[in-house]
Amino acid sequence: MREAVIVSTARTPIGKAFRGAFNETQAQALGGHAIHHAVNRAGVELHEVEDVIYGTASQQGSSGFNTARQCALRAGLPVSVGGQSVDRQCASGMVAIATAARQIIVDGIDIAVGGGGESISLVRNEHRNTYRSQDPWLSKHYPALYMSMIETAEIVAERYGVSREAQDAYALNSQVRTAAAKELGRFDDEIVPMASTIKTVNKDTGEASYREILLEQDEGNRPETTLEGLKALKPVFKNGQQIKRGACITAGNASQLSDGASASVLMEAKAASRRGLSPLGIYRGLAVAGCSPDEMGIGPVFAVPKLLKQHQLKVDDIGLWELNEAFAVQVLYCRDQLGIPDELLNVNGGSISIGHPFGMSGARMVGHALIEGKRRGVKYVVCTMCAGGGMGAAALFEVA
């Protein structure tokens, strides 16, 4: 039976949206950088890649034209290599890796790239509407489908009794874990530094200036964070009819808007063995599930049991968990409902402290979980996340 193995992973550092190092860098350049270096690390020739599957929550380019194809060409892959874009919102990058794996297992190709990325800076700006147009029928029958993600997080907090205090404490722990991990070099094996031009606007004059920069590490971590500082932050959401008590989602206990990209090279296991490659891990499966759009953050509660049942595993069989930190509230609820040990969850922090380029995060989490899982000597890792519209996705990998 054919198996798909991950033989390399590479990503950009993560830049802060709008004011960070990549605020003038195209999504295609970010994706191209990650893909090019992942292929180089795998030791395969550019023309040997048979397909590129790339996840993004916002297609970028002329008429939203297939970001995957554009990133493949930007990476230097020949025109003979195809590209397929995937949109499952925040699960896009991980689903792209799973899709690439299926191409290998089912369709018989030997080498594929799976990854994802996002340029929030160049999509959510004054030149482009943040939200897609709404279908009238869906607006009437499923109005929560078009809720802001912050409002869905507020609903989860209220509906399931997750306190502001617990959210802030979790957010602080994420910052602390990431700071410690950076000091120990836990992200070094996945990041490839990237040069860019950063745009700065003078607040007084409105004049823009540009300077060259080399980003070597993620920009999002705030090691100086304190619990007192988090408590002092005001909620972002202004109460609506659905929120009966005070709002609790702040800039401190929610993921950061960010820019970045990540990619992994997948290969058929026997083909990798013939080349003498040592894989990071083996793709074992993906499960997705839907939930009510107004509480989209709890999607993993439905996707994870489905995944574990498919593979006859239990929570205790998993040595490491990555659960995307869209909001502290949904991580806490999912962790407690699923019974995930805190010491095995997001051990080096997550999107609250690292950053969250929507299409990138799932791909980044897979690469990081495999590297960290190998360092710890665990057998299985699970990556899971909620996704806009009311969904959860979870993927199982065996560490090689």
Rank of each mutant, 00 (worst) to 15 (best):
Q84T: 09
G359H: 05
N253M: 00
L77E: 00
S8C: 13
G388T: 02
A157Y: 04
K238W: 07
S80V: 01
T250A: 13
V5A: 09
D51P: 09
V81D: 00
E48K: 11
D168G: 05
G290W: 03
S63D: 05
Q60M: 07
E212V: 00
E398D: 10
R124C: 11
N23K: 04
A328E: 05
R164P: 11
T56I: 02
A98F: 01
E158G: 05
V315G: 02
N253T: 03
Y54D: 04
L227R: 09
W137L: 11
D259S: 10
V52C: 00
Q28M: 09
A72G: 15
F187K: 04
V201P: 01
A34E: 12
Q175M: 12
H36L: 07
P357N: 10
V201A: 08
D168M: 05
D294T: 03
I35W: 12
R274A: 14
D110I: 03
K182S: 00
G64R: 01
Q89N: 02
L233C: 15
Q330M: 13
G117F: 00
S92H: 03
K379Y: 04
P279G: 10
Q175G: 06
Q241H: 12
E372M: 02
R132I: 05
N125R: 01
G388Y: 06
R88D: 00
G252C: 09
T250G: 14
E183P: 07
Q242N: 15
L46V: 09
L308A: 14
L370W: 08
G276S: 02
Q337G: 02
